[in-house]
């Protein structure tokens, strides 16, 4: 099995404070990997380091064998990052936004095909030609997921992807992620929603105070901690950590 993402003793320091303490982790190709943890645990910092947005204080992150610290430009061709509460350029229409992103990946006919794929993934009907500042939060998130997926990334990085969405929108977004995974894209996502992680993720990593305290499939973790839900597993693991 190919390793899509390998973190080796990764540390991140802000000033004199260490936010991530030597995290080591491997995510396999085609896997949906979930990071769970409370606010400030270090999930977003980890995802931002993988996405080349933040520098790595020490340790190493490799995306499909490419060193994030040394080959940032190459890594960015392989990944797609969807930050929590991400936005889009409000003066553009949904279609023009997808077109702008596509232009940075391909050109000509390929670009048109990529935009068309994005339009279909967003599934916004005629509203795809409306200005983005008229979109609801759910519509915005659908557009951004379409943006993240249409470029056919090898690794999709999603931070709190359903945060703040209503039940229907969250359900539809989870369906999209499930389909992405089926198409072979590797996904690493963070979430507060244990139910969502339990349903979507092949494996789960629990993060607390900058430490990766345990990793396993939802079933393995439930069995290990003797609990019925992932939520109970997380509470037990954190309190015992």
């Amino acid at each position: 099995m190919t390793d899509a993402l390998v973190l080796t003793d990764v540390r991140k320091t802000y000033g004199q404070r260490e936010a991530v303490h030597g995290v080591s982790l491997t995510v396999h190709e085609g896997e949906v990997f979930g990071l769970i943890g409370h606010n400030g645990a270090g999930k977003t910092t980890l995802l931002r380091m993988i996405s080349t947005i933040l520098t790595i204080t020490s340790g190493k992150i490799e995306v499909y064998g490419r060193d994030v610290a040394k080959e940032g430009d190459e890594v960015r061709k392989l990944i797609s990052y969807l930050p929590e509460d991400a936005g889009a350029y409000k003066d553009l229409t949904g279609r023009k936004y997808l077109s702008f992103i596509a232009e940075l990946f391909v050109s000509g006919k390929e670009k048109d095909e990529m935009v068309q794929k994005g339009v279909e993934l967003a599934d916004l009907g005629d509203k795809i030609d409306f200005r983005i500042d008229t979109y609801s939060k759910g519509m915005m998130r659908r557009l951004l997921i379409a943006r993240a997926i249409m470029t056919s990334p090898k690794l999709a990085i999603m931070d709190e992807v359903t945060s703040g969405l209503d039940v229907i929108n969250a359900y539809e977004i989870r369906e999209v992620i499930r389909n992405i995974a089926k198409s072979g894209v590797t996904v690493i996502m963070s979430s507060h929603n244990m139910f969502e992680v339990d349903m979507l993720c092949d494996r789960v990593g629990m993060v607390d105070q900058g430490n990766l305290i345990d990793v396993g499939t939802p079933e393995e973790l439930k069995k290990k901690y003797g609990k019925e839900t992932l939520e109970e597993v997380f509470v037990t693991a954190v309190k015992g950590a």
């Binding site: 320091t13 802000y14 000033g15 004199q16 404070r17 936010a19 606010n39 400030g40 645990a41 270090g42 999930k43 977003t44 910092t45 933040l54 929590e84 931070d159 709190e160 963070s190 900058g210």
Partner: peptide
């Protein structure tokens, strides 16, 4: 991250304190 989490700014402020609000 802005200046608030810059090492030089933190050095000026003194020992960094743990921030538990917002995503990390």
């Amino acid at each position: 991250t802005g200046l608030s989490q810059n090492k030089y700014v933190e050095m000026l402020k003194g020992t960094g304190r743990r921030n538990r609000t917002g995503g990390q």
